[in-house]
Design a binder for these strands. Sequence first.
DNA 1: CACACCTAGTCAATTTTTTGACTATATTAG
DNA 2: CTAATATAGTCAAAAAATTGACTAGGTGTG
Lengths: 184, 184
Amino acid sequence: MALRHAILAALLEGESSGYDLAKDFDASVANFWTATPQQLYRELEIMAEQGLVAARVVAQERRPNKRLFALTEAGRTELRAFTASTPKPTAVRDELLVQVQSVESGDGDAVRAAIRNRQEVAETKLKRYERLRDRLLAGRTEADYLASAERVGPYLTLARGIAFEQENIRWCEFTLDVLVRRTS
Amino acid sequence: MALRHAILAALLEGESSGYDLAKDFDASVANFWTATPQQLYRELEIMAEQGLVAARVVAQERRPNKRLFALTEAGRTELRAFTASTPKPTAVRDELLVQVQSVESGDGDAVRAAIRNRQEVAETKLKRYERLRDRLLAGRTEADYLASAERVGPYLTLARGIAFEQENIRWCEFTLDVLVRRTS
DNA sequence: CACACCTAGTCAATTTTTTGACTATATTAG
DNA sequence: CTAATATAGTCAAAAAATTGACTAGGTGTG
């Protein structure tokens, strides 16, 4: 029941369809949670049954109907209770690092290619996060924004994502450099 | 079947009991994988059946017998094949960030306490990682070590862990500062 | 005018992971 | 002497997450 709280948090931004949420979980929410569309649709269904979200069907022209989900009072209460609970420590699980750990006993070329790929993914994510930040700031300075904005939560989590990806890129560069040096 | 590869990678350091591995998964391996002792014992059992690891029982004085597991040729082959496969992108899952995202609708005191706690955990981990690094370097400089050591994999993953925890601490400090400022 | 890909979902089966309940002996701190 | 903690495991159930197979209409490109 953890995906549920990430969905509730995402719905603070406003009413969304399952599809909208899937896009969010690929962009801003990706900072702290990942989920496939299938997981979202199923969880939303259950949450609607339990009254944590309210669904309404909107007919669209030239497209299938969509269902928009919004937080209910019960949903807000649940989210509030969640913020008061002790968060689980994060479980790191990174296959690339397992590969790097065993690089000397493994396929060096493949591992280096995987690191390059990771770096590209990180660069793409970083750019997206930076665009999101610029949109949030809307011209204001960070200090200005943090002092005046109604909600700073989304900015703070975004800052974590940006720092994480920057660090990721630095590490990929460093690691590639070390491995290439040792190969040549 | 992903824990399996982390275990194989950990066994590159040498023969270990399930208990030894549990300690590793709490220290060095924690950089890239987490597992409870229960998960390890079960997976080791299966891996032994499949011939990826070889178990031998060692009688101990004043203690229960222990089983030591070592990599087999099949295990090394499996690990090598794994390093050649495309690693899954990591799935981030951080309850604390979900709480921070919703901090304005939630329990501010509890969220700030959780951030402080995360910072302390990160500081403890960082110290442990730095001790491990010092032990690996054994007096040599980083450049010296990277050029001459037989295996650099463990050092590189440790470097990732150190950078990650440092970034973590910085973010906790920044975020606490912002939240405390807005509360007072 | 095909063909690929996007939007908007549903459903069921697996796989993976976690959690909790157990059994034993050994060592250490108060 | 006693209680807490560490060592060394097993087993089963439950929860969580992933995967694959579907349906159906819409949009854009060569």
